[in-house]
């Protein structure tokens, strides 16, 4: 069954949707959208370094994404305006990555595959890493769920309950780096942040609890992945952008539906 490239692509996409759903909710709740962008863009620099040192792309992207995410967290604590810090880091990481890739000798790199994803080329080995990484993220978020939610509501409240908000922030940072590495081949660096935010935003219009929102975000992600792959196959469009386009349509549809639902509840 795994011999079929479409099956592998679908499974990889579903794994990414499962991890991106709950993590994307935290990105929305904590207003970390730009943070996600910076981390994702840094992945290109990770690709260049992995190629230069002939290591696994997963290892390289995870390492660089984590480094950039930690750098952002550190700088944020030093009185810089967050959007300025992120603006500098997100775009410099992308620029340096693209420049660095052009220096990699010998190999002709199809940078488009990393920028926009190459989900149809997911091999068995890739699938194992993507599935494992996604499972790790989902497990980590499930384990820390209550603490993460409390720290998201208020760091003071978390402190007073004996939690350490700094640790919870670190959990999210690590999860973000892992999702970026896992989603790079599926969605591509430019649109990973969209895969986090758009399904979560669509879910917001229907969810009454944080847990429902996370579950609905996964569902929206699943619809986006399956629909996007289908569209990609039918019209021969690039898979990553097609997935995000479907996610955007789900979000657009959620607006009137959500409003209708709220009105009915009131009336």
């Amino acid at each position: 069954m795994l011999d079929d490239f479409m099956t592998r692509a679908a499974l990889a996409g579903l794994a990414v949707a499962a991890a991106a759903g709950p993590l994307g909710c935290f990105v929305v709740w904590r207003r970390m959208a730009y943070f996600g962008d910076a981390t994702a863009h840094a992945a290109i620099l990770g690709v260049a370094l992995s190629l230069a040192f002939s290591t696994s792309v997963f290892v390289g992207t995870t390492a660089v994404a984590l480094a950039v995410a930690l750098a952002v967290s550190a700088l944020a604590g030093r009185g810089w305006a967050m959007d300025t810090t992120l603006g500098v880091l997100a775009h410099s990481a992308l620029a340096f990555g693209l420049v660095a890739v052009s220096f990699v000798p010998g190999v002709r790199v199809d940078i488009g595959a990393y920028l926009f994803g190459d989900i149809l080329a997911v091999g068995r080995g890739d699938l194992a890493v993507i599935g494992g990484g996604a499972a790790l993220v989902v497990g980590m978020l499930a384990w820390r769920w209550s603490a993460l939610l409390t720290a998201t509501l208020s760091e003071d409240l978390a402190h007073a309950s004996g939690l350490n908000p700094g640790r919870e922030r670190l959990v999210l940072t690590v999860a973000l780096a892992a999702v970026v590495a896992v989603a790079l081949k599926v969605i591509g660096a430019l649109l990973i942040a969209a895969m986090l935010i758009v399904p979560a935003a669509a879910a917001r219009n229907f969810a009454r609890t944080p847990e429902a929102m996370a579950a609905l975000a996964v569902a929206a992600g699943v619809v986006a992945v399956l629909g996007g792959l289908r569209a990609s196959l039918t019209w021969d469009t690039p898979a990553g952008p097609s997935i995000i386009a479907v996610a955007a349509c789900v979000f657009a549809a959620s607006l009137p539906l959500g409003a209708l639902r709220r009105r009915r509840r009131r009336g």
Partner: peptide
């Protein structure tokens, strides 16, 4: 509480325990 975060009172009272 961020507008993006749905939070019924019952759930809020159960955080973190």
């Amino acid at each position: 509480i961020d507008a993006g975060l749905p939070m019924p009172v019952r759930r809020f009272l159960s955080l973190p325990t």
